[in-house]
Nucleic acid binder design. Sequence first.
DNA 1: CCGCAGTAGTTGAATATTCAAGATCTTCGA
DNA 2: TCGAAGATCTTGAATATTCAACTACTGCGG
Lengths: 156, 156
Amino acid sequence: MTEPRWLDAQEMRAWRGLIGTNRLLFEQINRELSRRSGLSAADYEVLVQLSETPERRLRMSDLAAQSLSSKSRLSHQVSRLERLGWVRREECPTDRRGAFAALTDEGLAVLEEAAKGHVEDVRRHLFDRLSPEQIHALGEITATLNSYLETVVERD
Amino acid sequence: MTEPRWLDAQEMRAWRGLIGTNRLLFEQINRELSRRSGLSAADYEVLVQLSETPERRLRMSDLAAQSLSSKSRLSHQVSRLERLGWVRREECPTDRRGAFAALTDEGLAVLEEAAKGHVEDVRRHLFDRLSPEQIHALGEITATLNSYLETVVERD
DNA sequence: CCGCAGTAGTTGAATATTCAAGATCTTCGA
DNA sequence: TCGAAGATCTTGAATATTCAACTACTGCGG
């Protein structure tokens, strides 16, 4: 049980910075999203994933994976979205255990309405503050981390 | 009501990347922290802030600000930590509305035990994956964003 | 074709977070 | 010095998330 390699100043700055951005940026963007459209960040993410599919529906598992959610959370969440009339559950003919979540016309309308303001918020709070080089670097850094993390994370 | 400036490919990559890192990285690090030490990320953050103070205590408001928490959340959280014996509430002599949260010896011991493994997790999942240039860039980017965000975020 | 291990999804209880008051106390201007 | 406005912190209810079963089904080895 040897002494760990503590973080140096540079690393500490990046780590605390990331924690801060993580909280402040998403908190603010999500607050604005939800005020304007009544959609939580999680809801928005789910609706986007569904809308980007040709059939406007996805199997629950795939949807969970793509929206980085746990199965349980997604299940509760889809129930809520169903109550609101924005998503509909459909059964899967080829695998009777399976279920689809399908975006309704209403859901799509809500999403499209929310998207405009949301993009502007993201732009205002994130991209307007960074140089093109920084935006590029951020893309590289997160891509590197995420492809590693996907091999590591234990989900569910 | 003009058409918004949609995100271009570079921006979309950075934005989705950030969402992914945000979730995957912290989920994984927090899961490991909590498995090893029974501390949630929020608990750890609170204990760290207290431990870094000379008196090992802070006013609730200051603690909320430093740990980027809302007052309400912090209050509930400190109650929990108090039940566990890791934090103690103390009253403030100079302002009778005020309250301190103070780190107990037990709390400090738990924190120090947890810190070792936690630092190694952060290193393994974050810094070992990035070049020194990327670490530096990440520090710059988050510092820029956070100093802007602090002027903008509506907390509580 | 049987049985069993594993997959898909849901559920309910335990826990955590948010939201909107509420209870005290301080400050400051009239 | 009085009173109103604001600061500090807590509380309880509503909501969201996690965790550990549980149901129902598929697919595979024998």
